[in-house]
Design a protein around this nucleic acid. Structure first.
Length: 553
RNA sequence: GCGCCCGUAGCUCAGCUGGAUAGAGCGUCGGUCUACGGAACCGAAGGUCAGAGGUUCGAAUCCUCUCGGGCGCGCCA
């Protein structure tokens, strides 16, 4: 049982005030309680009064007055001031005492603060990356990896149980083609016209004993195994791990006495009356479920399609007992969404249980110059190259700081820059700086800085309120599958800390003990939340940084 | 042609299940400072939120259309 956050408790009070004014009826939409854009509008603003005219039978400003009376009574000393403004907003300003109490709650929760807020925790199956096992993880896979792994971190922190899975396409023509390409290289020949041309093919071939003379199928199998191992290593370096690497090929194999999972899925679909035969091929009638054409499961020559595998895979996901299935796909697969959703429903699932998230493309630039990529010739930027160039932290940050829905123009020259001009280092620096101050505080150090009057400065208040918003930020980001919000928040928190740092000396000699303690609390809470945010992003939160560390990163 | 995504400051992008005067980073210009970590801080300039209608007390946000860009439309995977 997670203790309720200070903001949640405030919401409850607001809710009570609303019920008091309406005589027990709630508005359709929950009232907002948010930080206003302008400081002059107080610590929090609520639109509650504007939601109630129909229920109360009065104008918003009038209702706001009544809410104000109720809130003043309920909040007592916690409330410093309250006023109605504009079309009916209520602006609240909380007392310093309330703020200190709220911060104490944050510190008591420690690293768990802001987490565990999911109202209905779910068992989530999350599939992402699923790069073809015939080559290294490329830039598109890198984005999928960053997004998927961070989403998994985020959902887990929010209180869900997440199973991370990588779907290995180790079945079909491409495997055959990969085997042929490997063998050709092993014999010192060119790969087939439609084969794999990349330089890595020869390297992989060299690691397979007798690749030039063994059956192609064996060469292919070993090649795939080597590629999967290489991908696993690349992704682990990129702080992306999976609970399971799910083999497509396994779906096609009989399981002891039982038929294959592909056959089992076909049987389920047939029972549901979702399939039909035409011109010797087996079709799934996806048009009944929103797709624009029916899809082939088994070709007229008897071979199953890639789609058949995917249908079986989703049958497996369904029967494994998850509340929700999320697939992260690259933009080039968005045409696939309708048929997967249709298949999932045909298998007995519901639309609410499956989500297909599309990550858009990444365009790479270097100092403004477009980095050319040709997949055809096997010349594409691999995840390993990206990591080597700009480091894991910067790579993850730049791929995560933007919505998965928008195309990213990533300039490597900028991302490479290891200075405060780079947002990722700016955030890390803020964390390191706080940890350094906390270490000095523990050692009992003081400084000669001017202690000032010890009052709660606007920037201290601002930072504290920002910390109190963390649980909301997590909930919003998780519910909207939007880890980039965490990055945005982390950056603004780092900025907020800079302002606090400027105005509020923490270690100044002559600072009253209670003020020093209060400011150290702010520092501790900020460090904790920054560390949580960075952990969700999979970005390191260092205790110290210097140029040498930065170069290694 | 049809479908999905996108169009917000010079550049890269937040903000989008409706709220008050649209934000950040970079870049540009101008400042601060013997600094509890200077990888710092402060300030300024910079916007028809692609365009046009509509819904609403209120629209960057919702609806429709237009324009522009990306991607996808196989018995390939």
């Amino acid at each position: 049982m997670t203790p309720r956050s200070p903001l949640q408790r405030l919401r409850t009070v607001l809710d009570d005030a609303v019920l008091n004014v309406t005589g027990g009826e709630r508005p359709k939409a929950a009232p907002t309680l948010e930080r206003p854009k302008q400081a002059a509008h107080g610590d929090y603003a609520t639109n509650a009064a504007m939601l109630l005219p129909k229920i109360v039978g009065a104008a918003p400003p009038m209702i706001a007055e009544r809410l104000s009376v109720a809130l003043t009574e309920y909040l007592g000393d916690d409330l410093e001031s309250i006023e109605t403004a504009g079309p009916g907003f209520l602006n609240l300003r909380l007392s310093d005492r309330w703020l200190a109490g709220a911060l104490a709650d944050v510190l008591a929760a420690g690293g768990a603060y802001g987490g565990g807020g999911a109202t209905t925790p779910e068992a989530v199956h999350l599939e992402f990356v699923s790069n073809n096992p015939t080559g290294p993880v490329h830039i598109g896979g890198a984005r999928g990896a960053a997004f998927g792994s961070s989403l998994a971190n985020l959902l887990t922190f929010h209180g869900h149980r997440v199973h991370r899975e990588y779907y290995v396409n180790d079945h079909g023509n491409q495997v055959e083609l990969f085997g042929q390409s490997l063998q050709a290289r092993a014999r010192g020949e060119e790969p087939p016209e439609e084969g794999y041309q990349g330089g890595y093919v020869a390297e992989v071939a060299a690691r397979i004993p007798d690749a030039a003379t063994r059956p192609v199928a064996e060469v292919a199998t070993e090649g795939i195994a080597l590629m999967v191992a290489a991908q696993k290593a690349s992704l682990e370096t990129f702080r992306t791990t999976f609970d399971r690497w799910f083999s497509e090929n396994a779906l096609h194999q009989p399981r002891g006495e039982d038929v294959s999972e592909v056959q089992e899925a076909f049987d389920v679909l047939a029972e549901q009356g979702r399939t039909f035969e035409q011109e010797g091929a087996l079709f799934l009638r996806t048009t009944d479920l929103g797709d624009d054409k029916d899809r082939v499961l088994v070709r007229s020559d008897g071979r199953a399609t890639y789609f058949a595998s995917d249908v079986a895979y989703h049958h497996a996901k369904r029967t494994r007992g998850y509340d929700r299935v999320i697939n992260v796909l690259g933009a080039d697969h968005h045409g696939y969404v309708a048929r997967i959703e249709a298949a999932f429903e045909a298998l007995g699932g519901t639309r609410e249980q499956i989500e297909l998230l599309i990550t858009q493309f990444v365009n790479l630039f270097d100092g403004g110059e477009r980095v050319k990529m040709s997949k055809r010739a096997g010349e594409f930027v691999a995840l390993d190259d990206l990591v080597e160039d700009i480091g894991v932290d910067a790579a993850r940050w730049y791929l995560l700081a933007r919505s998965h829905d928008t195309t990213i123009d990533l300039d490597l020259a900028e991302a490479r820059e290891q200075s405060a001009e780079n947002p990722v280092y700016y955030v890390q620096y803020a964390h390191a700086r706080i940890r350094s101050i906390l270490a000095r505080a523990e050692a009992g150090e003081t400084t000669t800085a001017d202690p000032g009057d010890g009052a709660v400065a606007p920037s201290e208040r601002e930072l504290s309120l920002a910390l109190l918003a963390w649980p909301d930020e997590v909930a919003e980001a998780a519910d909207r599958r939007a880890p980039h919000r965490i990055a945005t928040y982390a950056l603004s928190l780092a900025r907020g800390y800079s302002a606090f740092y400027r105005d509020c000396p923490v270690l100044a000699a002559g600072l009253p003990d209670d003020v020093r303690a209060r400011r150290l609390d702010v520092c501790r809470a900020t460090a904790t939340v920054l560390a949580s945010a960075l952990a969700i992003l999979g970005v390191d939160a260092p205790d110290r940084m210097d140029r040498e560390d930065a170069v290694e990163a």
